[in-house]
């Protein structure tokens, strides 16, 4: 394994331009219905995809390298099947991939961050690190912060616009209520993307075939020598959120239905 990583390092040294790391997660498709199994597991036979927010991260990384030259390295920490998400990143323009294999779908965010830091440092410091602003499965919303803190880098989240000026990064972040904060960061830095940053491309068949030939290194979490791993937040139980039953339907003319509805909202449900 050590030898393999070393050879990748040599490839990197030949690359001119920017080096961008993009962190991607393999998650259940958003359309999938989640069935809880046991206390804290779920039926993993559903379709898995690249975490939707990570698609914006990959797209921005690929566009940035297309403009400035360099390479995009897609990194994932996940089960063996997460290799498919790394390949998806390669199919839309990432140059090579790294998968850190674990046994669990839910890893402590601090552990994931330590694993990412270790592989990123082994691979050689990048100019930029892109991630999604959160995963749609565990919704921890913190791996990018943990990664930035452990690497001593600035971080911005919910990024909807990205540019570079005078060697620095300028991003716009969604702050709620339609407000946006414009933030300047020194490089390298961690940029957590959200929807609106760009329009991710769809892979074309020839690109999918080409992606199969792009370099992809796999390693085990245990081989990174991270020592005793933190477990600061553990999922002890999962519960399906129940759908409510069929609606009480209003009847009559539009006016009658609306009056009946307002009456029920005021007097029965007491929400008006």
């Amino acid at each position: 394994m050590g030898l393999l990583i070393k050879s990748k390092k040599n490839i990197h040294e030949k690359v001119k331009g920017m080096k961008i790391i993009v962190c991607v997660k393999h998650v259940p498709d958003t359309a999938a219905n989640i069935k809880v199994v046991g206390d804290n597991g779920f039926d993993e036979s559903v379709k898995f995809v690249m975490n939707p927010y990570d698609e914006y991260a990959v797209e921005e990384a690929v566009r940035t390298v297309q403009q400035n030259g360099g390479e995009v390295v897609a990194v994932s920490v996940g089960k063996q099947n997460a290799v498919n998400t790394v390949r998806s990143a390669l199919a839309v323009g990432a140059d090579r991939g790294i998968l850190v294999k674990t046994d669990a779908q839910f890893l402590d965010s601090a552990t994931t961050a330590l694993a990412l830091k270790a592989v990123i440092e082994q691979d050689g410091m990048p100019d930029l690190i892109f991630t999604g602003k959160q995963s749609v499965d565990s919704e921890g919303m913190q791996t990018h912060y943990r990664l930035a803190a452990k690497m001593g880098l600035p971080v911005a989240t919910d990024v909807v616009a990205f540019s570079m000026t005078n060697g620095n990064v300028v991003v716009e972040c969604e702050m709620g209520g339609g407000d946006r904060e414009v933030i300047e960061m020194s490089r390298p830095c961690v940029i957590a993307a959200t929807k609106g940053l760009n329009e991710p491309r769809y892979p074309k068949l020839p690109d999918i075939l080409k992606a199969k030939k792009k370099p992809l290194v796999e390693m085990n979490l245990d081989d990174l020598g991270l020592g005793t791993l933190p477990e600061s937040a553990a999922v002890t139980s999962l519960t399906q959120v129940k759908e409510r039953g069929a609606a009480t339907m209003m009847t009559g003319t539009v006016k009658e239905m609306v009056e009946d509805l307002v009456n029920r909202l005021e007097n029965d449900a007491k929400v008006l």
Partner: peptide
């Protein structure tokens, strides 16, 4: 302990913080 949204609201999770 906290209860939080998981799988974007499809499930909730009990998280033990330490």
């Amino acid at each position: 302990m906290v209860v939080k949204s998981h799988f974007s609201g499809k499930t909730t999770a009990i998280i033990q913080l330490s």
